[in-house]
């Protein structure tokens, strides 16, 4: 009990960051499930969502800026897929991954150009930026909102995937790309919808994340991006509940490590976890076993 009392602020922060990671990790896991692509640009899209929000709120009221930010990011995600990934659909997997790295490089450099390399401060969104005290630990409302919102969004997404036509198409495409094409599924639409959903969730995640960590720099998306990919791998890539559990675990562990005074290793821990899981159980917690055909 002593341990929990002492580390309560860190655990709370961990749960909150975990929820934000979960929203990003879903984007990775869905795209990987369908295209078998590590979308390296996803973390930078998350950063772009933060930056665009900053520029939008400079001139627009919040109730317009938030939906507009979501729309812009969804369009950006759609465009990235159409321009950078679609032409390479039949190319070897390595070249599409290189293209993803190229997009990430481009987004970072555009952000560097627009911001002039200075860290921008994220606007305060009322109510969720307020402070509250729980069991003697002071934190922002966003810490409490995040896990709830994450769970609501995840449940909605799972319902969408299990019960709608487009969800069924997504499952079919992720199971077998070519057969689903033969069955009359328009895979380009399915892939676009996947990217749009992933981008929207990343944009929501960015609003929650940057309310806590208010400085947005061109590279502030790359580390969370990599961590969320690790979360997706940990949970079994392609599995949404797996990604969410992995993200919460990584968020909580990372903050407890920070609490113990090992801040240098909080990033390294994530990757150590990745390597352990890849060696011990490459399919992750809930991943399906894939067989290589010769």
């Amino acid at each position: 009990m002593d341990f929990i009392n002492q580390n309560l602020p860190y655990i709370l922060a961990g749960i909150s960051v975990g929820g934000q990671y979960a929203l990003i990790a879903i984007g990775y896991t869905m795209v990987y499930g369908i295209l078998r692509l590590i979308n390296f640009a996803h973390g930078d899209l998350f950063m772009a969502a933060g930056l665009i929000m900053i520029y939008l709120t400079a001139s627009l009221p919040l109730y317009i800026a938030i939906p507009l930010d979501l729309i812009i990011i969804a369009v950006l995600g759609f465009l990235i897929e159409r321009v950078a990934y679609k032409p390479l659909r039949n190319a070897p997997r390595m070249s599409i991954m290189i293209s993803a790295i190229g997009v990430s490089y481009l987004l970072q450099n555009v952000a560097l150009y627009v911001t002039g390399g200075l860290a921008k401060t994220y606007p305060t969104i009322p109510w969720i930026s307020n402070s509250v005290t729980i069991f003697g630990a002071t934190t922002k409302v966003v810490t409490l909102v995040t896990p709830v919102l994450t769970l609501i969004l995840v449940v909605a997404l799972v319902l969408l995937i299990n019960n709608t036509k487009i969800g069924m198409a997504m499952r079919a495409v992720s199971r077998d790309f070519e057969t689903s094409q033969l069955m009359g599924i328009k895979i380009n639409t399915v892939i676009s919808v996947t990217f749009i959903i992933g981008s929207l969730l990343a944009a929501v995640g960015s609003m929650l994340y940057f309310t806590n960590y208010t400085a947005v720099t061109p590279i502030s998306g790359s580390m969370p991006g990599l961590k969320c990919f690790v979360a997706a791998v940990f949970g079994g890539i392609g599995s949404i509940p797996g990604a969410v559990i992995g993200a919460f675990l990584i968020g909580i562990c990372e903050n407890i490590i920070k609490g113990l005074g090992w801040t240098t290793f909080s990033d390294a821990f994530t990757f150590a976890l990745l390597i352990v899981i890849l060696i011990a159980k490459p399919t992750g917690l809930f991943g399906e076993k894939s067989t290589d055909k010769v």
Partner: peptide, 8 residues
């Protein structure tokens, strides 16, 4: 991703 992780 594992080699990237080791580099980090």
């Amino acid at each position: 991703i594992a080699t990237l992780g080791f580099a980090e």
